[in-house]
Amino acid sequence: MNYEGLKGKNDYSVTVFFDGKKRLFTEYVHNIYSYTQWLKKQSIEWNYILVYIRRTRGVLCYYKNGDFLHKFPDYEIKGRVKQGW
């Protein structure tokens, strides 16, 4: 995966899914952990989130609800990755 689209601020876009359906798309996300805390505060239920590199639209990884989340995806262990992404 090429990470050239990362510049340090609002590097990610996130799609939120619940029961197999897209619930929410947020284009500008700086901190993955804080974003999931915001979802919780807003009472937005989710099963998993799909994280993109915002500037290139490349899929980075996904996290299931309950996974341990860092502020930013760790590029050694960056979340779950499906084949073909």
Score class of each variant (00 low, 15 high):
75 Y>I: 01
32 I>H: 00
2 N>F: 11
30 H>R: 11
67 D>W: 10
5 G>K: 07
27 E>C: 13
1 M>W: 05
7 K>P: 00
69 L>T: 04
15 T>P: 00
47 N>Y: 05
71 K>D: 05
43 S>N: 15
70 H>N: 14
56 T>G: 08
40 K>S: 12
65 N>M: 08
43 S>I: 06
62 Y>N: 08
27 E>Q: 15
59 V>M: 09
75 Y>E: 00
9 K>T: 13
48 Y>H: 15
81 V>Y: 02
72 F>Q: 00
45 E>I: 02
4 E>Y: 14
70 H>R: 11
14 V>P: 03
49 I>G: 03
66 G>F: 05
50 L>V: 14
18 F>P: 03
62 Y>W: 10
13 S>A: 15
47 N>T: 14
84 G>L: 12
31 N>D: 14
24 L>N: 06
76 E>Y: 02
10 N>S: 13
20 G>R: 10
18 F>Q: 13
33 Y>C: 01
16 V>H: 05
1 M>E: 11
39 L>I: 09
37 Q>A: 12
50 L>K: 10
41 K>Q: 10
68 F>M: 12
52 Y>V: 03
58 G>C: 09
16 V>C: 07
56 T>R: 09
31 N>W: 01
6 L>V: 08
12 Y>V: 06
37 Q>W: 08
62 Y>R: 08
57 R>K: 15
20 G>V: 13
70 H>E: 12
53 I>E: 07
24 L>K: 14
16 V>K: 04
46 W>L: 05
22 K>C: 08
14 V>S: 04
